[in-house]
Write a protein that binds this DNA or RNA. Structure first.
Lengths: 106, 106
DNA sequence: TCAGAGGTATGGTTCAATCCTTACCTTTGG
DNA sequence: CCAAAGGTAAGGATTGAACCATACCTCTGA
């Protein structure tokens, strides 16, 4: 069962949900940046500078979280988003590399 | 430019379109079967036994074709669908393996 | 020649994704 | 204490995806 914040366990991750999450260009941009960053990088939603409202940000990050791509942890003032790199790589090897390899010019 | 039937050239394939096409479980089922089959296997739309109408079949196979996943060639009586295995593998290595590795119990 | 199989096109419905605005909560930091 | 920042929730508009029924086209094969 996913935890209270909707993080699925690795064995609960669904390929369909991951692909659907990554089909959106904004969400793919977030994941691509995290893949290219240092392994344990933590970022706030706002820090990606996506051209949408705060409410839409919440939506997109929920999709990423519930698919299992990111983990969001409470940091008091904010919620830090972190790529679940190793867990994804173990279950769906090569997936993150595909996203990272995409042309940066979206 | 895609040809008259909407087949994109390898360099025209968009990761977003491929992921969106593969996000649908029926379409993923088609691709998974083709990946597991003999390399040059040709199948008709109907042969996959998908639980949708003929009109919906046309829709799904168009999505697969326009994303670049399959090639549909005229065989007179019918149109044969063939996986564009090598072209996809060259441009998005590992993508097909992910689909093929998914649990067969959809 | 013509019935049937494989596909496509059209028109229309339904449902979900995306997006926004507004309002509100929590924590930090002055 | 209180303003500002990060984030969520609720409500509503818009768009597109998926689906079906029907009609139609083309080719095969009896």
């Amino acid at each position: 069962m996913p935890d209270a914040d909707g993080h699925p366990e690795p064995e609960e991750m669904q390929l369909g949900a991951l692909l659907a999450a990554l089909a959106d260009p904004l969400r793919r941009r977030v994941i691509a940046e995290l893949v290219r960053a240092e392994p344990l990088t933590e970022r706030t939603c706002v820090s990606f500078g996506l051209p949408v409202s705060k409410a839409s940000l919440t939506h997109h990050f929920r999709v990423l979280r519930e698919a299992g791509l990111i983990r969001q942890v409470d940091r008091g003032n904010s919620r830090a988003a972190q790529l679940r790199r190793d867990e994804i790589e173990a279950r769906f090897p090569g997936l993150l590399a595909l996203v990272a390899a995409e042309d940066r010019a979206l």
